[in-house]
Every structure is written in C-alpha cells, then in structure tokens.
Amino acid sequence: MDNLKKPRKHAKKPPKEFKSNNEFFEHVFNDKEMIWMGQNTNHLHETNLIQDAMISCIESKEYCKYPPPEGFSELQKLILKDLDLEDLDILITAGGTESLYLCMYNLLEKKNNAITCDPGYLIIDDFADRFAGEVRAVPIYNEECHYKLTPKLVRENIDENTKVVVLIDPLNPLGSAYTEEEIKEFAEIAIENDIYMIHDITYKDFARSHYSVAKYAPSHAITIYSFSKISGMAGLRIGAIISSSELIASIRPILINDLGTNLVAQAGAITALRSKETWIERIVTTTRNNQKRIKKMIDTIDDIFIVNYPSDGNMLGIDISKTGINPEKLSENLLDKKIFTRQGSYTSNEFGDKYLRVSFSIPEEQVKIFCKEFPIAIEELRE
C-alpha cells in the first residue's frame, strides 16, 4: 500500500554487520561480557531494595490488576517531594521519552516552531518535527556558549511562532548544566513570550548543582522526570510529567497508557525514592570517580580532549576530530573489544563526526578496562 504514513525520523545507523538497530541492540543486550557505556544507563545499584520491591509485587500477583491510569498517588507525591514542587500537578508515564512525546503532541501545531540544540537527544527533534512546522536545532558545539543552549542563543532564535524551548539539563551527550542565573533567565524568557520551557532533568541527580525552571515560571515550565538513570531502571520504562494543573489537564485526554503505567515498575520506583538517601551518595561518588579516571587517561593521548569537563551527567563527549578518526570506526573497534559506546552521529546531526559519547555509571573495574583499551583503539585506527 502506498498510503501509509511515513513520519520523518533521524536515522540511527547500526554497525555494518547488522541489518537493523533492533538486531544490533539485541546482540549487545545478549552479550553478557559487554561493557555497557553506550546508553547512559546506571549499573551501580548493589542493594536489593528496589529489586525486592518489584519481586514482592510479582509474588503478590498484583500485576493481574490494572494500576491507576495516572499513577499511584504515593509515587506522584514522592516525585513532587523529590523535586520540591509539591504545588504542581503530575502524570506518571512509561519513561521520559513518552513524556516528551506527549508534550510535543499536546503543544505543537504546524504554525509553531520548537527550539532544541545540537548536539542533543535527537528523539526530541524527531517528536517535534511530527507536529511543528519547524524545529530549530541551535548549534552549541563550541566553547563560547559552554556547549549548551544559553538564554542568549534562545533570544536570538525565538520569534512570534515559537511555542516550545527544550532544555536538557544536564545535557545528553556532553553533560553541560545550567547555573541558577541561567535558569532564572530562561524562566523570564518563557513568561515574557508566553511559551513553554520543557525542562528534561533525566540526569539531574548526577549534577554538582541543579535548579528548576518550574520554581521561577511554574505556569510556563514542563518538567520531564525519569527513573532510567539515577535509579538504574532504564529497562522498566517509568517517568513522569510535572507542570501546572491546566497543562496536565490538557494532556490527560491524549495519554497513551490510559490503563496505567507498568505496575511492577511503579513498585520499584516508589521504593527507589523512599530509599534514595541510602544509595545516592555512593552512586554519584563512584560515577564521578570513574569520570576522573577517564579524564586522566584521555590527557595522555595527543589530539584528543573531553568536550565538557567535568561533566554534570553520567556521560561525556570525547573529541577525536584532530586525529582524523571516524567516530563510527572507533565505536566499532571498541565494540569488537566488548565495549559499547556511541558515535557522535547518535546525538548530533551537525557535529557527529567530531566525538564519541561514553557513559560511566558502571563498576570501576569496567572503567579500568575501557581506559586500557581506548588508547589501543586510537593507535590501531591512526595506523
């Protein structure tokens, strides 16, 4: 049939020996020796509290029932408390990605444009492109803007048709974060222009400091929350949208999971927030120490540097552009060494040939292996 919809989407190119991304992901997933540094996932949870809560939920056979369509009230309250945004409204979703899709679907029309950044989380651009007339991906791969979408850049790109500005804070893939003064100015921009700031805070718990747009512009901010990273629950797909009651009310009619988000995942998420104080310091400390180890190794290699150091996320970009090495070739070389990383084109349309993205919320011993194998890979590809 020739009448099927063909939405535009950023092409995620699998390594050459794989027919599709699904085949590639399944290969990486099934290889138990693979060191997982390609998806910013967190592999540092050692305690069994979150796991035990989900096992208990399964053993009780509560999964036979549907959960509340907007999420359990306890989980909603715990998320709002975690963000100190208890006066706002909330919906539980199947992860931050679904939250982003719902926001784009709800807010954007063909007469609108949306402002994002490049590098960034390209699926956001894909979603916005389905509904807006234009997606303005502002180039931010330079020292002048400190590798992030600044208020100055937003003011330069905004017009009367702008409806949404997306802030990924800290930024995937470079770990750039915002100061309180910058967040206040973003809030002012939103209020002055009557637009929405979508504040994706997926990596906020790894940051040295973090500030909320919703604190300064509660009626113009949409906060995207995820359990995928800091809570180590990426495969369980659970997150939330936090905003004003008016905005949340407009999203309710378009909820995809109108029979509720995964009940077992919600049980884990509740326990993750209840127990957060018992594990977060260890997770963050280990992650930052891993980053220092990678920086020490990178500093020994000519023509290579970490784009934004220290990263406030659990990932960083390694610029290899002066070596002449193709990031895709480097990623494939490391994959052969059983180290899964991401070439720059995964998170950038314009600058993908410059860097490799590496995440490091993994055991220290695995980071040591990466630090041993990375220089070898560089030398092999230089030759």
Rank of each mutant, 00 (worst) to 15 (best):
S311D: 02
W279S: 01
I304G: 07
H146T: 05
R136G: 10
V307Q: 05
D118W: 05
K329R: 14
E182W: 09
K296N: 13
E246V: 07
V138T: 09
A217E: 02
Y121E: 08
L316D: 02
T347R: 05
K61E: 12
I294K: 01
E383M: 13
C145Y: 04
C117E: 05
A265V: 09
F18P: 11
F340K: 14
D299R: 01
N349E: 12
N112Q: 11
K229W: 00
I222Q: 01
K111E: 15
K148C: 04
S275F: 15
L263S: 11
D89L: 03
K12Y: 15
K12Q: 13
V135A: 13
V307A: 10
K295A: 11
L330S: 09
S359T: 05
T300W: 06
T341M: 11
K337C: 15
E192T: 08
I230N: 00
I369T: 09
V154K: 03
L107W: 02
K110E: 12
T341L: 12
D31T: 12
S331Q: 14
I320P: 01
S73M: 02
E281M: 12
K354Y: 11
F374K: 11
K204C: 13
T285Q: 11
N262R: 13
I168W: 01
G239Y: 03
K65M: 06
N290D: 02
S56V: 12
K65E: 12
C64Q: 14
L236Y: 12
P69T: 06
T278V: 10
I306A: 03
Y147D: 03
L102K: 05
I325Q: 06
Y203M: 12
S231F: 11
V284L: 04
D126M: 08
T347W: 06
E70G: 04
D87P: 06
S60A: 14
Y346E: 13
K65A: 08
I230V: 03
N161L: 03
I191A: 01
A217K: 03
V165G: 00
Y66M: 08
N3L: 07
I362K: 04
Y211I: 13
E109F: 03
K322S: 12
L85F: 09
I124D: 08
A265E: 05
D125G: 14
I270D: 03
A377Y: 00
T41K: 14
S250Q: 15
P139M: 00
L273A: 09
F305G: 02
A267C: 14
D126P: 12
G268V: 05
N42R: 10
G71H: 07
M1K: 10
L4I: 05
L88G: 05
P67I: 02
E281L: 13
I378T: 06
L78K: 12
E59I: 10
F305S: 09
S212K: 15
A177F: 04
S361L: 00
R155S: 09
H146K: 14
T93L: 00
S228Q: 04
G344E: 00
M197H: 08
A217L: 03
I318P: 01
L273C: 10
N161D: 07
E365R: 09
E246C: 02
E160V: 10
V284C: 08
K61H: 11
E365P: 04
S60Y: 03
K184P: 10
R130G: 07
L356C: 05
G120P: 01
E156H: 04
S176C: 09
N48W: 08
N48R: 15
H146R: 13
S60E: 10
R136W: 06
I306M: 07
L44V: 13
G175F: 02
S321W: 04
F340V: 04
Y121C: 08
